[in-house]
Design a protein around this nucleic acid. Structure first.
Lengths: 245, 245
DNA sequence: CGCCCGGTTGACTATGGTCAATACGTGTGG
DNA sequence: CCACACGTATTGACCATAGTCAACCGGGCG
């Protein structure tokens, strides 16, 4: 990390309009600027361990991080996937409950925790935005619970691809139909931890989807979906949103 | 519903110190009183269907309600379990995303949605409390995701019993050790929907735990746990919280 | 009395897990 | 330049856990 990232101005920030700071006015932004600093993590590096003291909260500026829980015998379940603009950390709690790991190279916009908590009390827009973001995360967690509890391995894989595609599309304002390309930042093992499967089952199901022409592979991490609607058929979800024809 | 429940005063409310209104001062409480009304539901009745227009949000005063998601072919997954003091509904969204069903007889303290949303903007304490409650729910959802994705049937059942016991204990300020009694408000099918299992597997695992003396049954719904620590051993969780001995 | 609902139990099956061998790609050192 | 080693992914053979289908139990209520 040669360059001092603290130089970066909020105005030009790529996640300015989607992160916790999205609704801030000039005054609020100024107070945020005072307590913010940047950190970079290389792929694979831990950002926080469960039980660690957390001195900061923050936003993912670029890259992907995972939130995981691990049992004594090593079984691990991913319980959160942090993409750019997502918020990490819990205001009001000084100790991390989960492991947070950089999946790809990550840049984090950090706020010192104590001053940030004060900001939550002083200024309305940060707290309001954080509430909306937390409610969205809860909705995502609930969709994920349906996947974990009731879907088959094939439906799980298809759902994961569809979810990543949707989030990429919304971040980059792309259309979501026909031929699409999904850049998967996850290893097979990370996908398995996301879906509550083994990496072998993930591999087998991806091979099956490839064999049947639902997906094509370009290298190990880039997946081409010839027809997004075909992929949706495999997720088990209600495609037409329950509209009566 | 013969008696007008609107007469009930917030001061004497059993969930006054735990619900969204917990941090309200006298002024704020007065504004809440103006927009609140009570509703009662019998066990089994729907409170909301996915896709329904929701005119209110509210708190569970007594009873238990479930939040579920259903796939086209009927597979259903519970994604939320609402106990007294829990909040239902999402401010800012007029259409329910989930099915909400009264599991036992339920009394709901409802707030008309629009005025409640205004309150969220005008007064700080409701929004702050709602943020904390939502963060708690997200934590609970993440623990649940570990259960759904990585635990065995036996561990799932044990975890569910431990979770219900913990919540009952915290609501009634009881100690949580040694011999405890868990009043399960759920049918075998509801437990299965909670845990991502079939009702047959739930039944078998409960029988197995009974055979091995981890639990005793008093009727179908009341479960006696002779030793809470023994039950915890079966959940697969880190019992000593990861403390180095 | 008999039905219905919720629950239990049994026999069999299927889906996904385990263990192991093999392939592939990239960076390192002889 | 090739050999090899390491991390990641694929594939196969076999197995275990939980699901399916079905019979049966028991209590409450019309």
């Amino acid at each position: 990390m040669t360059r001092h990232m603290t130089d970066i101005d909020c105005e030009g920030c790529p996640i300015r309009h989607r992160a916790v700071c999205a609704r801030c006015d000039a005054d609020e932004l100024e107070r945020l600027e005072e307590i913010k600093f940047y950190r970079n993590y290389e792929a694979g590096q831990p950002i926080a361990w469960a039980g660690d003291e957390m001195t900061f909260v923050g936003s993912i500026v670029s890259g992907v991080a995972s939130i995981t829980q691990t049992m004594e015998d090593g079984r691990t379940q991913m319980v959160g996937l942090l993409l750019p603009s997502d918020f990490m950390g819990r205001p009001g709690r000084s100790v991390s409950t989960y492991n947070v790991t950089a999946v790809s190279d990550v840049t984090l916009c950090c706020f010192r925790r104590k001053p940030f908590e004060q900001l939550l009390i002083d200024t309305p827009h940060v707290g309001e935005r954080l509430l909306v973001m937390t409610l969205d995360e809860l909705d995502a967690a609930r969709e994920w619970m349906l996947i974990l509890g009731r879907k088959t391995a094939r439906e799980k894989i298809s759902s994961l691809l569809a979810i990543i595609a949707r989030r990429e599309a919304s971040l980059n304002m792309l259309k979501l139909t026909g031929r699409i390309i999904v850049d998967l930042p996850l290893t097979r093992e990370a996908m398995a931890d996301y879906l509550g499967l083994t990496l072998e089952t993930v591999s087998r199901q991806i091979s099956a989807l490839k064999r049947e022409g639902i997906i094509e592979l370009e290298g190990k991490r880039r997946i081409v979906v010839p027809d997004y609607e075909d992929l949706l058929m495999e997720t088990g979800d209600d495609v037409d949103g329950g509209v009566i024809a």
